[in-house]
C-alpha cells in the first residue's frame, strides 16, 4: 500500500503523451535552428516563470541513466535550482552532481557553465520571454509573420537607437542573435559573456519557455551571431584586470555580493559559476 501511495506519478512526472508531444517538438526545433516551435506546455506543480519550460524539456529527455545538474545564476545551491532538482529527482530517481564535467544533462537559468561542455552533454535553458521581437512587436501574430519573412528591420532600428542614446547596444542580457544565418533568436537572460559559447559549440542547447509555450534549439556546430554594427561591435562584460576574489580567475563572469566581517563587511566580486570556482579553489589547495 505504501508503495502504491508513494508512486502516484508517472516516471518524470509528465504522462507519456505529454512527453511525446515535447519530444516531437524538440526534433523540429533541432531541425529548424533558432525557430520558435509552439508546444502545449502543461500545467506544472511549480509556478509559471520559474522554469516550467526548461523543466518540461528535462523531464521529456531524462532517462534513469542520466546524471543531472541544475543551476540558477550559475549556482547549484540557489533556492530555485534546489527546488527544481528536488522535483526532478523525486519523480525520476536520477543521480545528481554539481560538477559540470560529470553531468549528462544540465538545466540552467541565466548562465552557461564556464567549463566547456562536451558532445555527450545537453544544456537545457529556462526561458522567460522567447521571442526577441517582443521589444519591438509585442503582438505574436505579427511577430510570427516577421520571423517567417526574416523581416528584422525593426530590431535593427531599435539597436541603432540604443547606440545613439546610450553609446552602446543597450541590451545587457537576452542579447538577440541570428542563428544559422536565418532566424533571430532570444538568448534568454544569459549575460553577453555567455553568448559566444552558443556559436559553433560542441553541445546541443535546448531552450524551453513554459509560460510562452515555445521550444527552440541551437544544434552543435551552428553559426550563432550576435547583432552588431561594424563601428559598434558586440562586446561582453569583460573588464581588463577583472579577477575573482575567491579563486583568482581572470576570465570568468563575476557577480558582486556582500561579505560580513568584523569591520562591518565589504563587497566582493566572485565567479557566478560557483561549482567551477570551488573546483579551482580546491585545486589550489591541493597544489599548495
Amino acid at each position: 500500500m505504501t508503495e502504491l501511495t508513494d508512486q502516484l506519478y508517472h516516471f518524470a512526472l509528465l504522462d507519456e503523451d505529454a512527453q511525446r508531444e515535447i519530444r516531437r517538438k524538440l526534433l523540429k526545433a533541432v531541425a529548424i535552428p533558432g525557430h520558435l516551435v509552439p508546444f502545449a506546455s502543461r500545467d506544472m506543480p511549480i509556478a509559471r516563470g520559474w522554469g516550467t519550460g526548461g523543466l518540461q524539456i528535462t523531464l521529456s529527455l531524462i532517462t534513469p541513466e542520466d546524471t543531472l545538474k541544475v543551476i540558477d545564476q550559475g549556482d547549484d545551491e540557489s533556492v530555485n535550482a534546489v527546488n527544481l532538482r528536488r522535483l526532478i529527482t523525486r519523480t525520476t530517481g536520477v543521480a545528481t552532481t554539481t560538477d559540470t564535467t560529470a553531468a549528462t544533462i544540465i538545466q540552467t537559468r541565466h548562465r552557461i557553465p564556464e567549463e566547456p561542455m562536451r558532445a555527450d552533454q545537453i544544456l537545457v535553458l529556462q526561458v522567460p520571454m522567447a521571442d526577441p521581437l517582443r521589444w519591438v512587436e509585442p503582438n505574436i501574430e505579427r511577430a510570427t509573420i516577421m520571423h517567417s519573412e526574416a523581416d528584422y528591420g525593426k530590431m535593427w532600428v531599435y539597436m541603432y537607437e540604443s547606440i545613439v542614446r546610450a553609446g552602446d547596444l543597450r541590451i545587457a542580457s537576452q542579447y538577440p542573435v541570428i542563428v544559422n544565418r536565418r532566424y533571430m533568436m532570444d538568448t534568454t537572460p544569459i549575460p553577453r559573456w555567455d553568448v559566444p559559447k552558443l556559436h559553433m559549440a560542441e553541445t546541443l542547447y535546448l531552450f524551453g519557455a513554459g509560460r510562452e509555450k515555445r521550444i527552440y534549439a541551437v544544434p552543435p556546430y551552428t553559426a550563432v551571431e550576435p547583432l552588431q554594427f561594424e563601428d559598434y561591435p558586440f562586446r561582453t562584460e569583460y573588464r581588463p584586470g577583472q579577477r575573482c576574489a575567491r579563486c583568482g580567475a581572470e576570465n570568468t563572469f563575476l557577480t558582486s555580493h556582500f561579505v560580513a566581517d568584523a569591520h562591518g563587511g565589504r563587497w566582493e566580486t566572485t565567479c557566478s559559476d560557483v561549482s567551477y570556482c570551488t573546483k579551482r579553489c580546491a585545486a589550489t589547495e591541493t597544489t599548495a
Binding site: D6, Q7, L8, Y9, H10, F11, A12, L13, E16, Q19, R20, R23, L26, L27, V30, A31, S60, L61, I62, T63, P64, R86, T89, R90, T91, T92, G93, A119, L204, A217, P219, P220
Partner: peptide, 29 residues
C-alpha cells in the same frame, strides 16, 4: 527523499532511450 514515481515500463524505457538517440542523430548529422 523518497521517489514518488513508478518505474518505466519496457515500452516507456524504449521510447525514452530511442528519443535520445534520435535527438542526438538529428543534432549531429
Amino acid at each position: 527523499m523518497s521517489l514518488v514515481a513508478a518505474p518505466q515500463t519496457p515500452l516507456e524505457r524504449f521510447n525514452g532511450q530511442t528519443f535520445r538517440v534520435l535527438l542526438d542523430c538529428l543534432a549531429r548529422p
